[in-house]
Write a protein that binds this DNA or RNA. Sequence first.
DNA 1: TATTGTTATACTCTATAACTATA
DNA 2: TATAGTTATAGAGTATAACAATA
Lengths: 146, 146
Amino acid sequence: MTLTNALESRLGYQLRRASAVMMADLSRELADMDLRPAEVTALLVIAENPDCSQTEVGQALAIKRANMVPIISRLMERGLVARRRIDGRSHALTLTDDGSKCAKDVQDRIDRHEARFVELLSTPDMETLFRCLPVIRTAREAEAEA
Amino acid sequence: MTLTNALESRLGYQLRRASAVMMADLSRELADMDLRPAEVTALLVIAENPDCSQTEVGQALAIKRANMVPIISRLMERGLVARRRIDGRSHALTLTDDGSKCAKDVQDRIDRHEARFVELLSTPDMETLFRCLPVIRTAREAEAEA
DNA sequence: TATTGTTATACTCTATAACTATA
DNA sequence: TATAGTTATAGAGTATAACAATA
């Protein structure tokens, strides 16, 4: 027997379920790279913003300073990210050559992943989503390390 | 300095960020009840579907059988849910009187929580969201215990 | 004093495999 | 054989508090 679920008419619930489906699909797309979603997002932000700091990456992605530490450590261990001291308390992050190659690979994978979902939606629907979702985000400034 | 982040134009990323904001808001709304989001969603599904089984609740919410165990245990310890054997291997779940009161309280809290976000969106935008989000979910049947 | 990075730690949700006792 | 519930365990992300070094 299939149950009723009034939560289906709730925005937060629908967002969570849809987000979970896309995250699971992304994880599968990245599986053989041995990189987690949080790590690839950091990698891409560093690719776009050479010489940024760890805290800045965290602010861009709503990841707290403390939680950035293992992410950047892992990217450095993997030889994808390098850093040099800036002023004794902060670092400038850049991609290594391997990191740049990896970032391109990641972009291709994300393109494929996104396409699987975006192709199901019309252009006006996509416009609505990209207008509404940021509104939800800024509604409550409850995001990490705001 | 503020960084650029091309992920902002990705559907999966926007869904994740928006979902995280709403989840954080819901957690705050529930904080003094000492119930987690996963527990209240199970509570509500049981309220709607008296005598359902644990596995059915999991299927409705995309929570795996194994992960339902601590959720139901906790709701029973709290005296909110009762169960009786059906056929030796399955149980029928119902709310206790306390559970019904709690479910009503939870509904009110979710109403307030949802209202904070929904009031920022127009009716046609909401219609679009409730049409598109289920499409995303069904795109890949990657959901738990499918 | 405020900031950057860090450590330690706990919590929440999710995932898999394997077991039991039933049916 | 298949199903309902369970156990154990690991992984991923997130949260807080506190610290050192530096600005």
